[in-house]
Nucleic acid binder design. Structure first.
Lengths: 148, 148
DNA sequence: CCCATAAAGATTGTATACAATTTAATTTAT
DNA sequence: ATAAATTAAATTGTATACAATCTTTATGGG
């Protein structure tokens, strides 16, 4: 085996995924700026547009993010007026996230984004879907603590 | 088409890549802790073990990172004694990064990491390589400014 | 030669990420 | 029922990321 092929950057799956994630995020930046969201905020809104009135914990499980990241992010979205954060009466440990009217309405503006992005990235939706499926499978394997 | 399939989180390639990158990073954490590196520092060292005495600019192109991220990271690795940062005599705008003896020696300790990670992740090296190749291709398409 | 541009790093400001800890509420086991 | 364990958020501290700006140095016309 050549000296150190296992340590070559170009052989690292991790690096490819890591670099790709950041480059895609950069691509989103100008589009998201128009609707006033950061990338992570957009991901959170995507989850909430599908299903809101969920706890921080549940949102975190969906996004693979913990309260350390979500608490400040959700406070910001609350300040912007896109959602509310209210303690659950049934279980005061939990905080329930609900979209406001404005938060729900923002979905209309977001609808054009995926299409614009595909064009920009020059990736066909077919190959994107195939790749997404594989990466998702990998994500599930790699997931450290699925119960989290 | 169902209400909003384009905005569904599970249909987003970007989210799969983004979440996967973070989960893989978490997997590395305990292994890298043993050799005293963070994930990004490890990536930087991988590049430098392959080729050092390069400028910050060149390292940034290799890693898809800019000086805003690299400057503090490299200062830290300099403090740790793994590398040196010296202005290029030929072009005082550039800073040349060179590994110290300790920096070069650390490679020996790092050699075991990729193997350990594959076992932990439960991914065969064959499928990892196939996926890596696809993501790398995608990375190149998505790259905004290759000249950068 | 001299100025306008460009290039490379460094800096600033904002927004993540996440480990580790803390606080408050709830469950569980005794 | 109550102390111990668990759980959910929030907080703290550290380390990225990156856009935007600034500083210094180099380059290229005129």
């Amino acid at each position: 085996m050549g000296t150190d092929s296992v340590l070559k950057l170009d052989n690292q799956l991790c690096f490819a995924v890591y670099a790709c994630a950041r480059e895609i995020t950069k691509l989103y930046h100008p589009l998201l700026k128009e609707i006033g969201l950061t990338y992570t905020q957009y991901i959170a809104m995507l989850a909430l547009w599908e299903k809101d009135r969920i706890t921080v914990k549940q949102l975190g499980q969906r996004l693979y993010l913990d309260s350390g990241t979500l608490t400040p992010l959700l406070k910001k979205l609350e300040q912007t007026g896109l959602l509310t954060r209210v303690r659950d009466k049934q279980d005061e440990r939990s905080v329930i996230i609900a979209l406001t009217e404005r938060g729900t309405a923002l979905k209309d503006k977001a609808r054009a984004i995926p299409e614009q992005l595909f064009c920009q990235a020059g990736v066909s939706s077919g190959e994107a879907e195939a790749l997404r499926a594989q990466i998702t499978e990998m994500l599930k394997k790699v997931q450290q603590n699925p119960s989290q």
